[in-house]
Design a protein around this nucleic acid. Structure first.
Lengths: 192, 192
DNA sequence: TATATACTGCAACGAGCGTTACACAACTTG
DNA sequence: CAAGTTGTGTAACGCTCGTTGCAGTATATA
């Protein structure tokens, strides 16, 4: 009963996500979020309670719609031998693309981890979980690639790949060539 | 001629540096900088012109007093074979220590690279140079460790180490164990 | 000692922030 | 059709931000 919501929630969250992605939590102003979502403050605060509530929804949407789809081939029942290389090259293309499309660059969660919001326990947990998820997926890719390698080698390779990916995210804004080079190095490392 | 400055510039910059390090540029408020440095706004603005001027001084001080001293053994005339491992273990200790002492964590420049300030050309250049400097130093360490290794191997090892170090910086705030593990992995990789 | 110069304290500025209050419009339910 | 509930628009709130003006103080030079 009552009036129906005049906008699609998922679409609004997606628009807000881009702003948080580009500007970070603190520097994403509510007026900017209004503009991006096309919503009035009233609608935002009614639907999400606060700026932080919208951010949390954006993070959830980021995990569900950006991170996990990209990692899916690495957590499938049967992981293809070249799934990890495919992930890395796909990510490379995405990083290069994101650079020119708009300001949103790198990884929303990695960006967040170097901000004061990282002191928030909920955020900290989310980012830690994300890192563990990424690492576990990459490890699956390593194992699919080299089924006979010792566990210690798989662990080490997974750690190295994870670090190279995170570094790429970190560097995209300030040094895009280095960022892309990180992912190339990851592919290179996997072939030795 | 005229009245002498009542505070030591280097000391004030060092105090401000900690605040920027902990909170980032945008979230470091001028009142917080006043408190940390013990200076009045007037003194800050007279000496540094603006908040941004103080930040630039803080970055310079960070490079001169934190980054370069730590990298010195790696750019000496004769680099010791275990200089790189020494750097990594020293950094590990520093990361673990910084966690408990105060909020300032990770690397001031790496933290900055995931913030909107990274869009500033001067900042971007500084961070890019820093990354190149770090990578070059680590490469020297690799070469000192394995004088007979092919160039391509040295490059790859240097890239991997650089990425592991940057990842460690990125993760310190949200997942300290993983951050320390990155540096352990770097040492591990160097021994294979 | 007189004068010019440089540093500091106090107070206020305009602007933007995130948030809230309230009235009105739209629609579902009885 | 009436009642009740929910979404939207307008306006303002109190607060903090970075910055500036200005008077006053301390020092170096002449």
């Amino acid at each position: 009963m009552g009036r129906a919501q005049g906008f699609e929630t998922g679409q609004a969250v997606r628009a807000a996500r881009e702003v948080f992605w580009r500007d970070g939590y603190a520097e994403a102003s509510v007026p900017a979020l209004e503009r991006a979502t096309g919503l009035n403050r009233s609608s935002i605060y009614h639907a999400f309670g606060s700026k932080r509530g919208l951010f949390d929804a954006a993070v959830q949407s980021y995990l569900d719609e950006v991170v996990r789809p990209r990692l899916r081939p690495l957590v499938a029942d049967a992981v293809a031998p070249d799934a990890l290389v495919g992930y890395l090259t796909g990510l490379r293309a995405a990083l290069a693309r994101a650079e020119e499309i708009q300001g949103a660059a790198g990884c929303l969660l990695v960006n967040t981890s170097s901000s004061p919001l990282a002191s928030d326990d909920a955020v900290r947990q989310t980012v830690a979980d994300y890192r563990a998820e990424l690492r576990a997926a990459l490890r699956r890719g390593v194992v699919a690639m080299r089924p006979d390698a010792p566990e210690a080698d798989a662990d080490r390779l997974a750690d190295v790949c994870t670090a190279l990916v995170i570094s790429a995210f970190t560097l995209v804004r300030v040094d895009p060539p280095s960022a892309l080079h990180c992912l190339d190095t990851a592919v290179d490392v996997l072939k030795h």
